[in-house]
Design a binder for these strands. Structure first.
Lengths: 336, 336
DNA sequence: CTGAAAGCGCTAACAA
DNA sequence: TTGTTAGCGCTTTCAG
């Protein structure tokens, strides 16, 4: 902790601090000879520029904050990795903010932007409305959103195409002859759930399969929710041959219910989930699932946000709609 | 982005910036009347102190960096959560650094400390030696380590008691009459693996069970490694009745091998792993496992490190050895 | 109890 | 090509 300062280097090299700064920042306006001398001194003194001084002077923290609902969810880990790797490669750092599923916390983290602790904030959380975020964005703060579409032209966003995601599932099932397909939704307040249901309905139409409201049941994205939803559904109807669950957790719940009810998968019932979590490969039969491009959602958005901060405000594309990929496994396919 | 500054507030309230600063920082040296007036102006102007200015002046970033080998590993997520929640509650922020399993990256992140981007660094990675870390700590930088014991008196550390962890497993097995217990290690370079093996050997002695070298086989903490290790072991000997794997991934490998070899668990072979990952509850039979206090490892260390930075350098306890907990499930217990 | 003034370490006009 | 100078926004002596 010697704490050499730029002035120390300057004196030792017999130049001004400005010149040292120029050398440090790779300015072309420095004599080669001088540059070498300064570099030499920098090495000798083991000088490391103090980032706080730089930040204040440049009014840039070179840091992004990412707000997630719960750092424990593996869903976020991949997104964070995407953001982190991209940010680091562009010389930015990443602050992690765990909102602990509390709207209040999400709001509090916004202060990191306002008090200039970070240059931009990425929300991967559902609580804050477009309007709330817009008021900040319109004030000139840099905000990005992952997981849903936002219409404010200042807010870049990346999200999965849930309509085509649902279509892929329905067509995969329809191709195998299924006509009675049930859908288990997540929270009805979640955009993801709404969009998947919407896509499901659209796809049925496209596939020429009549929509039956009684084949749609509410879950809540949890295993237990899926279990309950399936049981309720099954108590009403027994004629459906396939279930599309809005995520894999609910598919696990369906598995549990089927085990209890003596329904064999995929012979009597075919199941497809979303997220392709690791567990889907460890139950028998393995669960077919739609894999979201999580890493990409993170890296694409981070890149765009950083790009935008560095002046390319006019760059055209602001919304990144990425496609999920169907991973077919035994739960939805006899002949695999 | 109005960017009100302290001087603006000062003028408006007809006081000096110093007084505004005092109000902001809750100094007692302010007349109640003045304080109210200043507060009023702060609210009116919606003044938010600029953190960069504060950081530079106070020479504190109020930020910790956490370096992990791979943000995707669920193992780290819990530790990060522990650090994050504790840090936030003490008004610190957390920077996440993904070393991507590269030693070089770990080294690079140390620069965050040196250039004063963060006040302290927590290493949850294995690559850097005690000596390497010590040289920084001795220079006055604040470093903490999670996952292994470090002897430098300036470096606080938190880790699981692997000796007692292994003992708990061995005694659990011995109590059920097992005398031929196999051990599958992780990487031989990993402290965790070494300590668990050491604990295993010690515990056998304590339990009065003769040690048999041929019942110890090398794995590498991966499922495939566990699979291979078990196959090798089994090709040599068939008389053991229990396997203790250094982590759950390897236990999954054992499951796979047993399925192929027609060995039934727990009737013919009992299995115990470490980490109690979610998957252990979804295979049949569920895998008994030692659960590490990951959240605590993170929060305890963060608390200590922050405490230490704030002057309590003399506080006695520097090493936090926490106990793992045995979660008994069907893989190691017939009568469950 | 309050204010003036001096920086924290750095960069960027502006001059030379 | 280089140096001088003036801050970035804040806190904290030191006087009063």
């Amino acid at each position: 902790m010697k704490d050499i300062k730029i002035i120390d280097v300057a004196k030792q090299a017999d130049v001004s601090p400005a010149t040292v700064s120029r050398v440090l920042n790779g300015s072309k306006l420095v004599n080669v000879k001088t540059r070498q001398r300064v570099m030499q001194v920098i090495r000798e003194l083991e000088y490391i520029p103090n980032n706080m001084g730089k930040q204040l002077r440049c009014r840039k923290a070179m840091t992004l904050a990412v707000v997630v609902s719960d750092v424990l969810a593996s869903y976020y880990a991949e997104i964070i990795k995407g953001i982190e790797n991209m940010a680091n490669s562009l010389n930015y750092r990443v602050l992690i903010c765990d909102a602990q599923n509390q709207r209040q916390k999400e709001l509090e983290f916004l202060s990191l932007l306002i008090n200039h602790t970070v240059d931009a904030l990425i929300m991967v959380t559902p609580s804050l409305s477009d309007e709330e975020l817009s008021s900040y964005a319109d004030d000139g703060y840099h905000l990005g959103v992952i997981g849903r579409k936002v219409e404010n032209p200042r807010i870049p966003c990346s999200f999965t195409d849930n309509i085509s995601l649902a279509r892929d599932v329905v067509f995969h099932l329809a191709e195998q002859g299924h006509r009675k397909i049930a859908f288990l939704s997540g929270y009805m307040s979640a955009t993801d759930s709404i969009k998947r249901l919407e896509g499901f309905i659209k796809a049925l139409e496209e596939a020429g399969i009549p929509l039956e409201q009684s084949l749609i049941e509410n879950g809540d994205f949890s295993e237990i929710g899926g279990y309950g939803a399936f049981k309720r559904l099954r108590s009403q109807r027994q004629d459906f041959t396939a279930v599309f669950t809005a995520n894999d957790e609910m598919a696990l719940g369906v598995y549990k219910a089927c085990a209890e009810l003596g329904i064999s998968i995929p012979e009597q019932l075919v199941v497809v989930g979303v997220d392709n979590i690791r567990l889907t490969n460890y139950v028998v039969p393995r669960i077919s699932s739609m894999e979201q491009p999580l890493y990409m959602l993170g890296s694409v958005l981070a890149e765009k946000l950083i790009d935008q901060m560095n002046g390319n405000r006019l760059a055209d594309k602001r919304q990144f709609k990425l496609e999920a990929e169907l991973i077919v496994k035994e739960s939805s396919c006899m002949q695999i």
